[in-house]
Design a protein around this nucleic acid. Structure first.
Lengths: 208, 208
DNA sequence: GCATTTCGATACAAATATGTATTGAGTCGG
DNA sequence: CCGACTCAATACATATTTGTATCGAAATGC
């Protein structure tokens, strides 16, 4: 059949773009934004700088492309986890919170990269609002989930959902850092679980 | 008198060293480690690269020198605050914790720099243990202070002092970040105070 | 099939950063 | 005072890194 296309021997543009982003994720996580070079990024995924420069106009453009990809993935991941956790009936606030927290990415590269984004934003005011807006969505997801699951648990809700969401986020970040620095000292999720215990402490927090 | 020395017109070596470190603190905070150049650092304090290269053999050497200076300052600051807070008799756990927390540096440059150190450590395993050891001292200070002031408050202590200290540290870091990103949304110390409220919540955190 | 276009590799040019060498002013000991 | 020495500024050489230009292979449209 003349219609038959020869098997594709060359990857599509989008595919190589993704590969470059993969390399950038690794490189940025390992060496930071300024510490990563084109060569460094390309080597990791077996491409040449030609592909890099053909796909991205500048380092900043790549950076923001990667940023969008990461945020989108996190967002859908959290939304999915929330929907899933909310769908199982009869789960307690405690269960839900821990399940939700467990859905957070405890991934080294991911954490380092998103921290990199954060510090980039802190250092470039123009970026700050953009980043804050994205972070706001994450906070909104957390708040929404909390509001749903804790509807009756007024002793929690009364403390202010937004602040609780921020606290969860803060502990997650700080805890990730400590966990990566001293893996044997801090288990992933440990501090967050502890925080949840504190928040949900029954009227009589048992002392043993 | 022949003994009389002419007034010194040239700064001592140590003084210019300190000035360079000052410039580096600013530069690293604003642009990060890799993003800062010798020129950048020197300009901020009105020195030339000659002074830089005369004072430090390499960028890494400067980095570690700055690191030591920063850690020392934090350590003495926390120790002082602890001693001071402990010395006033009759203070409640709540008061103490908040006073202690207030003594933490909520300083933008300082935070960014120490974060820079942290990520440097995460990325250079050889540095990690060194950094962790320093952080361990900070944690020990917090633990010690907590142990002293909360001696009787077993419902807190029973939860595990080390974990509490780590939680405080984690919240401080995460809270600093959020506060710098959205100053109008998150007041400095707000999340830490909130955490303390959670931990010290009276047996009946009932809301009404 | 063949011409055109696309994409990625290689080669090249320019900019930037680091570290060394040199120079001259400032300091210290006799 | 005077020579030896120290330190910081300037000038220079080197090394990286980026971005552009060019070229060849591969895909697409007629």
């Amino acid at each position: 059949m003349s219609r038959r296309r020869p098997a594709r021997t060359r990857p599509t543009r989008a595919q190589t773009r993704e590969r470059i982003l993969d390399g950038a994720l690794e490189a940025f996580a390992e060496r930071g934004f300024h510490g990563s070079t084109q060569e460094d990024i390309c080597e990791r995924v077996g491409l040449s700088r030609g592909a890099y420069n053909s796909s991205f106009r500048s380092k900043d453009e790549l950076f923001f492309a990667l940023y969008d990809r990461v945020i989108e993935r996190l967002q859908s991941r959290l939304e999915e986890a929330t929907a899933c956790a909310l769908s199982m009936p009869g789960s307690t606030a405690d269960n839900f919170l821990k399940a939700f927290i467990a859905s957070y990415p405890f991934d080294r590269d991911w954490y380092l990269l998103q921290a990199e984004f954060g510090f980039y934003a802190l250092r470039h005011p123009a970026m700050a609002s953009h980043y804050a807006e994205r972070q706001g969505r994450i906070l909104a997801i957390i708040e929404g989930a909390l509001a749903d699951i804790l509807r009756e648990d007024s002793r929690i809700v009364a403390r202010g959902l937004p602040r609780i969401a921020r606290l969860i986020l803060a502990v997650h970040e700080g805890s990730m850092f400590q966990g990566l620095l001293e893996p044997h000292e801090v288990a992933s999720g440990e501090l967050l679980d502890f925080l949840v215990d504190l928040m949900l402490a029954r009227a009589a927090p048992r002392v043993d």
